[in-house]
């Protein structure tokens, strides 16, 4: 790979000759590391505040004075062990809904993306353009009609009702169609010549080559649904066994209180599982997507 981008930004001297590598790296770090701190400031702030004792969450102090109990685990204890707060049930439901939604979304988007990318059928382009247009419709407007449908189908308080309405993800369709369009036709033809069935071609050629994009879509859908509040709130009655974590955590926002420390402890539970998931999974998709985009 030839070098182009390594010398594109902030790495050239006035004469246009590349700087020494060490200087370049130092300069990059000088820009990137403060930026990184800024980007992660909310996360840090959240974690620190979640450990603070009542009243300290709204003080710009971090080092406790002698004899002062500035930090505590109390905020977390309340979320975990309150007998009236079935934390694990909420978390499990969130996990089921987010996973279910992500699996279905990826499955149907990959199939449809393949068809829109590689199959020729009457009405294809018109249909695709129509679907893309739907992306521009403000999302909240779907809520009321979708709720009526779910009522009609009798899906209140069911996982099905929580999952299915959000699986036709047009952004995901677009992502996969763009990716699959980039796959060489010769591969598919070769498979056909080898006598592979349509289904076989799909599973043996298209799916393996689309894994990074599929994982990306899986994770994006997963996090979207993990934090989906409004829909999961209205599609479940409060006595439903399927309440999810965001709905449960909203119970913490008492009537008038603004206890930052407890709110941040609650927020940790909506953010940290995602952070862990991504740290584990990132190599499957960030590296998959950007593989080779390293120039030296």
């Amino acid at each position: 790979m030839a070098n182009f981008a390594n010398s594109t930004l902030a790495t050239t001297r006035a004469y246009g000759r590349p700087m020494p590598k060490a200087w370049r790296y130092a300069l990059s770090y000088a820009v990137l590391l403060p930026l990184l701190l800024l980007v992660h400031l909310p996360l840090l702030w959240m974690i620190i505040t979640a450990f603070k004792a009542p009243g300290y969450g709204t003080k710009l102090e971090f080092i406790p004075r002698a004899g002062e109990a500035m930090y505590t685990l109390e905020n977390f204890r309340q979320v975990f062990f309150d007998k009236d707060f079935p934390f694990y049930r909420f978390a499990w439901n969130s996990l089921v809904v987010a996973t279910g939604c992500a699996v279905v979304t990826v499955a149907i988007c990959t199939m449809a993306g393949y068809a829109f990318a590689k199959k020729r059928f009457p009405g294809r382009d018109l249909l695709f353009a129509g679907l893309i247009t739907i992306m521009l419709v403000p999302g909240i407007i779907f809520m009321v009609p979708q709720y009526r449908l779910v009522l009609k189908f009798g899906w209140i308080n069911t996982y099905l009702g929580m999952i299915l309405p959000h699986t036709a993800n047009i952004f995901g369709l677009f992502l996969l169609r763009q990716h699959i369009r980039g796959l060489p036709d010769s591969l598919l033809e070769a498979a056909r010549v080898d006598g592979a069935s349509e289904i076989g071609t799909f599973f043996r050629i298209v799916v393996p080559l689309s894994v990074p994009v599929m994982i990306t879509l899986f994770l994006l859908t997963f996090v979207g649904q993990w934090s989906n509040f409004l829909w999961q709130l209205i599609v479940n009655t409060p006595d439903s066994p399927h309440l999810t974590l965001p709905v449960g955590l909203s119970l913490f926002q008492g009537q008038y209180q603004t206890e930052w420390e407890k709110m941040m402890a609650g927020a940790c539970f909506s953010i940290l599982p995602i952070a862990v998931l991504f740290t584990v999974a990132q190599r499957f998709f960030i590296q998959g997507l950007t593989a080779g985009s390293v120039k030296e």
Binding site: D84, Y147, L151, L233, P238, L251, Q253, Q255
Partner: peptide, 23 residues
Amino acid sequence: IIESQVPFFDMVQKLRSAALARQ
């Protein structure tokens, strides 16, 4: 008596949607 807790700020929203579902 089956009692359940509803987020205080979302009570009206919940009642509204529950009414449509006759629940």
